[in-house]
């Protein structure tokens, strides 16, 4: 038996909107630790890793580890029917073939339940080794989204370079080139507007903007995004989910042929 009650149901709505276009089908894993998902996009270029820790739920019951295969587009459709202030409860029986999403309005005057069929999904879990990153950039998530969107109107790839001068996002296309440099900025009044650059070694890597733009659909989840870079490693674009966990996107770099 599985029963997870999330007072801030909008978090789950936002998570689904962030990943549904990148991943079609995925297994949600439930354990005592929490509700998690790891899935690759269909091209096997990017990896999504979600964790919602059990402590973040108002009620968390998971009698035994359960893996539930879901079509994320269908799950997103159902969660879209929840109000932004609704409490969302996810329910499933051990060995059952469906999952129920229950939506309660804040004053309990409307209760809805949506049942969705589960599916068998063959997916292998990848081991993500702990890594020391050469550069970690923390910046406003909306700024990161803006940069990726702007650059994708000029080119298809972005070169992200971190030096002691700052972080540079560059692209080139048929019409010309673009460079956007951000410097560390900790002197802002609000911490969510800060840009913090931690650099061990200068690093420069090239990524497909199509994927970066897809990751930025998670912008509503967090005011800040963390971009971790190391040569020879996928970039990690991380959105923290308040008090609960994270949504991380890993993207393999492009290399010169």
């Amino acid at each position: 038996m599985l029963e997870l009650r999330l007072v801030q149901g909008s978090l789950l709505k936002k998570v689904m909107e962030s990943i549904k276009d990148l991943v079609n089908d995925a297994n949600f894993d439930c354990s005592a630790t929490g509700f998690s998902l790891q899935a690759m996009d269909s091209s096997h270029v990017a990896l999504v890793s979600l964790l919602l820790r059990s402590e973040g739920f108002e009620h968390y019951r998971c009698d035994r580890n359960l893996s539930m295969g879901m079509n994320l587009g269908n799950m997103a459709k159902m969660l879209k029917c929840a109000g932004n202030d609704d409490i969302v409860t996810v329910k499933a029986d051990d060995g059952g073939d469906c999952v129920t999403f229950m939506f309660e309005s804040p004053n309990q005057d409307k209760i809805a339940d949506f049942e969705m069929k589960l599916m068998d999904i063959d997916s292998e879990h990848l081991g993500i080794p702990e890594a020391e990153y050469e550069a970690i950039v923390r910046m406003p998530s909306a700024e990161f989204a803006r940069i990726c969107k702007d650059l994708s109107t000029i080119g298809d790839t972005v070169v992200i370079s971190v030096t002691k001068e700052g972080v540079k996002f560059s692209t080139r296309g048929d019409i010309g080139t673009a460079n956007i440099v951000l410097r560390q900025n900790t002197s802002v009044d609000k911490p969510e507007e800060a840009t913090i650059i931690e650099m061990e070694t200068p690093v420069s890597l090239t990524f497909a903007l199509r994927y970066m733009n897809s990751f930025t659909k998670a912008t509503p989840l967090a005011s800040q995004v963390t971009v971790s870079l190391s040569s020879e490693l996928p970039v990690v674009v991380e959105y923290k989910i308040a008090e609960m966990g994270y949504l991380r996107f890993y993207l393999a770099p492009k290399i010169e042929e």
């Binding site: 096997h44 879990h125 081991g127 890993y250 393999a252 290399i255």
Partner: peptide
């Protein structure tokens, strides 16, 4: 010419 690498090149199945 640039080549897109696969994620499996970096992360092995558990």
């Amino acid at each position: 010419k640039q080549k897109q690498q696969a994620i499996s090149r970096f992360f092995a199945p558990k």
